[in-house]
């Protein structure tokens, strides 16, 4: 357990000193700010554009528009940033050889995986919550307090999908010992899940629906039952990726 915490401490220091954590926080803070502002400004911008006599009826912006921006930004750019920041999470340590020194000190191989996942998931959670809180505060500031049905499930979903992406990056890094291996594994699985989207019946089991789809809980178009199976599958896949990575790492020749 002591080596788990030591390695977590090392991971935190690494994310801090290589500016990864700062970059992540800054980008997610900007997303948080942009969501309500863009929702507020775009309709006003549209009304000022001269469209040659065509009148565009723009509905009055509402709090839900701000949340629409939130799910759009987090579900696309946010997850992309997460992948870019953490794609080298295991690959760099393995390919550079820095891990050899540590493993030959008696550190158990699976502890490396658990620590790396814990810290990446922690940083992702903090960044995500920062974005969420900023968006919430500004949305309330512009439109006053408003109802957010099934908020816990709606806002947990992208977080859970982020955990899944982290576990995929770890698994990919262990499999291929390279940054590209990690990226291709993650990208490949996400593309595959998006392709499965052509079967509407599979929608409620497909984890990719958690990357932004839960907006429809807030606007009342869907109910929790439409997402809960995907959440469960996503969690199972995350745990499987982590267990798979530890089993594979134990058998990997270094």
């Amino acid at each position: 357990m002591k080596s788990f915490f030591s390695f977590c401490k090392k991971e935190l220091l690494e994310n801090y000193r290589t500016y990864r954590f700062i970059v992540l926080l800054a980008i997610f803070a900007v997303f948080g700010l942009m969501n309500p502002i863009v929702a507020k400004i775009i309709p006003e911008l549209l009304t000022t554009v001269d469209l040659g006599g065509i009148t565009v009826e723009v509905p009055e912006p509402a709090a839900i528009d701000s949340w629409m921006q939130f799910f759009k930004n987090i579900g696309q750019m946010g997850l992309l940033v997460l992948v870019i920041v953490f794609c080298g999470i295991t690959a760099a340590d393995l390919s550079k050889g820095t891990l050899i020194n540590i493993l030959t000190k008696g550190m158990k191989r699976h502890t490396v995986i658990y620590s790396k996942f814990t810290i990446a998931a922690l940083l992702w959670t903090v960044s995500y919550l920062l974005s969420l809180i900023i968006t919430y505060v500004y949305t309330v500031y512009y439109w006053g307090s408003h109802d957010l049905p099934y908020a816990f499930l709606a806002f947990s979903a992208p977080l859970v999908f982020g955990y899944f992406l982290i576990s995929l990056m770890i698994l990919g890094g262990i499999c291929f010992k390279s940054l590209y291996g990690s990226l291709i594994t993650t990208g490949g699985i996400v593309i595959l899940m998006n392709l499965l989207g052509i079967f509407p019946k599979l929608g409620k089991y497909n984890p990719v629906s958690l990357s932004g789809g839960t907006l429809e809980l807030l606007n009342g178009q869907k109910v929790p039952g439409d997402f809960i199976p995907a959440v469960i599958i996503c969690l199972i896949l995350t745990v499987s990726c982590i267990i798979g990575a530890t089993l594979l790492f134990d058998r990997k020749q270094l």
Binding site: L13, I100, T104, G106
Partner: peptide, 29 residues
Amino acid sequence: NRHIGYLPDVPEFYNYMRPKEYLRFCGEI
């Protein structure tokens, strides 16, 4: 490995650490 100390041909370290921090980390492990 608890009985062994290993020095690879080209040892690789975490470049962002200072020597004392690195030894502390190794000691904790």
